[in-house]
Nucleic acid binder design. Structure first.
Lengths: 227, 227
DNA sequence: CTTTTGTTGATAGCATTACTATCGCACCGG
DNA sequence: CCGGTGCGATAGTAATGCTATCAACAAAAG
């Protein structure tokens, strides 16, 4: 995947920003810096003032790129899902078996990202942690219908569609393919968060990736497919 | 269950409030009013100032009961899980079959609450909507470890334990009982939210409760138990 | 019956957050 | 060398989050 770095960009709905942060050095510093800072102090404590100080600019300049921190978060989350879809495409290319494609998809969706592939100026390891801990806050708001109209969730919905197509291919009679996939995605994030903070509601053991195993097992048993 | 209303109270960790809201008229109005107002305008837009205006008191008086809106939300969510555990106890009393107990538990955890049982001053229909839309924001914060220490999640963890005990009884070899139960609980909330706002990532059909059916089916298939 | 204590309402005030406006300078393209 | 654009600098305003003080009242204690 390294060979494509710097050549591929992920298109983000222009309704999420006032000025495209990809087009300037300051814009990229805002994106890079916000990932650093949100990962470090959490979304609640993150403000544009702190971000400005962190990257050596002014609050007013940050506001020239993003309306508010909610829109910035939507931008980051949308980028993440665009990137995930791009990775999925490579991961499934030339793979014949639907079972293998599903297995790989579930792994992709639920595993922790540990290696920064240095896709441009974005640290994917940190962004993954942000998505795990903060992305639901981008969904669970009163503005969701409006944000949905602006295209903020288009990659997310596409990804659910693509994986649920594999589910249907594998188990044509199954009625809940999209619910299964979105449950795996969000459940995967939650289980990672719970494993770190409320281990009593999980069954995470050392030395293996229980989250990936749990959801893989869950999906294949549900689809009555002993793989 | 009506017969017990007004006689049973749900104990809430005293670390979540400054003054027990159960002990005064104003305290109960704060709880009742906050449920009304959060359900109406959402947690983001909810402030103690607005709450005070809503219930005809002052901001300072509200602060005498709760430190901040995060603690108030934890209070409401903890009450909800205490109430759910209480309901679960009745629902499972004298039921022999583990399969039936699990089926009933999953229904309880994932169905929408439509009838206000008028448990004291708390509107359970509205509280259920708040839990669906806002409770994850009470978990996904930097303070979770501290909140966990204060006992804010004790009912939640107990409930997961109790249902996962049924899972283990039904399928002794299954290794992920707690992950399964917590996935069902939170997944159920998310699917309800998605059904209303991002229907494309669900498979909700008219006239039946797809969420309950999906998770029931998911659990029993995963446990390899054709019930 | 009086004193004490606790509860609430009223008002004020302060720090931070969220955002907007204005201005001037530097740089870049024409 | 002119004109626009992007950015830093500085102000300023409204809302939010929270604390302090004080007086009125009621209930409890003596």
């Amino acid at each position: 995947m390294q060979a494509l770095d710097g050549k591929i960009t992920i298109a983000i709905s222009s309704q999420l920003y006032l000025k495209n942060p990809e087009t300037s050095d300051l814009g990229r510093r805002i994106v890079t810096g916000s990932i650093d800072l949100i990962e470090e102090i959490g979304l609640e404590n993150f403000t544009f003032r702190k971000l400005a100080a962190h990257i050596g600019t002014t609050e007013a300049s940050v506001y020239r790129y993003f309306e508010n921190k909610h829109k910035l978060l939507l931008y980051l989350v949308m980028w993440y899902w665009g990137w995930m879809e791009y990775r999925l495409t490579f991961l499934l290319a030339n793979v014949e078996s639907a079972a293998v494609r599903l297995r790989r998809s579930i792994r992709l969706l639920t595993e922790e990202i540990v290696e920064d592939s240095s896709f441009s100026h974005i640290n994917e390891v940190k962004l993954n942690r942000i998505v795990v801990s903060e992305s639901l806050k981008a969904y669970l708001t009163r503005e969701i219908d409006e944000d949905n109209r602006t295209g903020a969730f288009s990659y997310y919905k596409q990804l659910v569609d693509r994986v649920s197509d594999i589910v249907v291919e594998l188990s044509p009679g199954y009625d809940y393919s999209r619910m299964l996939v979105s449950t795996i995605i969000e459940g995967g994030h939650l289980q990672r968060f719970f494993a770190a903070h409320l281990p009593r509601v999980t069954n995470v053991r050392e030395g293996e990736d229980s989250v990936v195993r749990f959801f893989t097992d869950l999906a294949f048993r549900t689809l009555d497919y002993q793989a």
